[in-house]
Simulated scan of single mutants.
Amino acid sequence: MLEVRSTGELRSDGKKLTGYAAIFNSETDLGGFVEVIRNGAFRKSLESASNIRALYHHQGDALLGTTRSKTLKLREDPHGLAFELDLPNTTHGRDLAILVERGDVAGCSFGFRVRDGGDRWEQRGPSLVRELLDVELSEVTLTADPAYADTSVALRTRKNIINNDTRRLWLETCLWD
C-alpha cells in the first residue's frame, strides 16, 4: 500500500527548487496517530537504483523530475531528506516556480511503502506513535498542503549546494542572478 505524507517566469537556464521533503525526529499528528521519521529511513531507497520521481501534489501526470535522469537529487543529512530539483520548462514547471516564488506552495510531501519491519508502533500515554525506520521511497511532492508542516521548498536561480541553514537559504532565494 502506497502511503503519502504531505511538505517571474521560469527560465530554462537552470532554475532549481531546493528544500526538505521530510524532516527527521519531528512528530506530526496525522489524526488517530502521531508519526515521526527517523534518521536513515530513506537510506536503502537512496542507495538503490530505483527511480524516484518529483511530482506536483502527488499527481503522476505532473512530473517535475526523476533521480534516474538526475534532474532530482536526494540525500539524507542530519536534518532530513534534502532535495534539489531542476525545474522543467513545462507548464507544471513554470506554474510551480511562480507558486513557490509567491509562497503559495511552500511545503513538501513524499510517497512511500514501509518495508518489512520498517516501522515501530508504540502507545505513549493517550497517543499512538508510529516511527518510520525503513521505507521504500517512490516520490517527493511539492504541495501547498504538506502533512509535515516542517518541510520546506525554495526557488533557486543559481547553482548552490543543499544547505540546511534555513535563514541563509531564504536570503539566497531573494538574491536573483
Rank of each mutant, 00 (worst) to 15 (best):
His58Cys: 05
Arg167Glu: 03
Glu136Thr: 03
Thr166Phe: 12
Leu171Lys: 04
Thr151Pro: 08
Arg102Ser: 14
Gly8His: 13
Leu74Thr: 02
Lys70Thr: 13
Ile161Leu: 14
Cys174Gly: 08
Glu35Met: 02
Phe42Ser: 05
Val34Trp: 13
Arg94Val: 10
Val129Gly: 07
Glu76Lys: 03
Gly93Ser: 11
Lys159Thr: 10
Pro88Ile: 04
Asp165His: 12
Glu35Val: 03
Ser138Arg: 14
Thr66Asn: 08
Gly111Cys: 00
Ala21Arg: 06
Thr91Lys: 11
Glu139Lys: 02
Glu131Asn: 06
Gly14Met: 13
Val114Asp: 09
Leu30His: 04
Thr18Ala: 02
Thr151Leu: 08
Glu84Asn: 07
Arg113Gln: 08
Val100Thr: 06
Leu96Arg: 14
Asp165Arg: 14
Arg43His: 09
Asp77His: 12
Ile52Glu: 01
Leu46Lys: 06
Lys70Asn: 13
Arg11Trp: 01
Phe24Glu: 05
Arg5Leu: 06
Phe42Ala: 08
Pro78Gln: 12
Ser50His: 03
Val153Pro: 04
Ser50Asp: 02
Asp29Leu: 12
Leu142His: 10
Arg124Phe: 00
Ala154Glu: 12
Thr66Gln: 10
Glu35Cys: 01
Arg130Asp: 06
Ala97Val: 10
Glu76Arg: 04
Leu85Cys: 09
Ser45Trp: 05
Ser45Leu: 06
Asp134Gly: 05
Glu35Thr: 02
Ser138Lys: 12
Gly107His: 12
Gly103Met: 13
Val114Arg: 14
Gly117Met: 08
Ala62Val: 06
Gly117Cys: 06
Gly40Cys: 14
His57Asp: 03
Leu155Ile: 05
Arg120Ser: 13
Leu128Cys: 04
Thr18Trp: 01
Thr67Asn: 05
Asp86Ser: 15
His57Glu: 03
Gln59Ser: 11
Asp77Ile: 11
Ser127Met: 12
Ala82Trp: 02
His92Thr: 15
Ser50Arg: 09
Arg102Pro: 00
Gly103Asp: 13
His79Ser: 10
Ala49Trp: 04
Asp104Tyr: 15
Glu47His: 07
Leu30Ile: 06
Gly40Asp: 15
Ala22Met: 05
Leu17Ala: 15
Lys159Arg: 14
Leu81Glu: 07
Glu47Leu: 14
Gly93His: 09
Thr67Ile: 09
Leu96Ala: 11
Leu96Asp: 08
Ala82Glu: 02
Leu137Ile: 02
Ser45Ala: 03
Arg113Pro: 00
Val135Phe: 04
Ala82Pro: 00
Gln123Lys: 15
Asn160Ser: 15
Pro146Thr: 05
Ala62Thr: 09
Arg53Ile: 07
Arg75Ser: 00
Thr28Trp: 10
Leu133Thr: 05
Glu3Met: 10
Thr71Phe: 05
Gly31Met: 11
Gly32Met: 08
Thr71Trp: 06
Gly14Asn: 12
Arg68Val: 01
Leu74Arg: 05
Gly32Gln: 09
Arg167Gly: 01
Arg130Thr: 03
Thr141Tyr: 01
Ala149Glu: 15
Arg38Ile: 13
Thr67Gln: 07
Gly32Asp: 09
Ala49Val: 09
Ser138Thr: 11
Gly111Val: 01
Arg43Met: 10
Glu3Ser: 05
Glu9Ala: 04
Gly111Ile: 01
Val36Arg: 15
Arg94Cys: 09
Leu87Val: 11
Ser45Cys: 00
Val135Cys: 04
Leu169Lys: 06
Lys70Arg: 15
Phe24Val: 04
Ala82His: 00
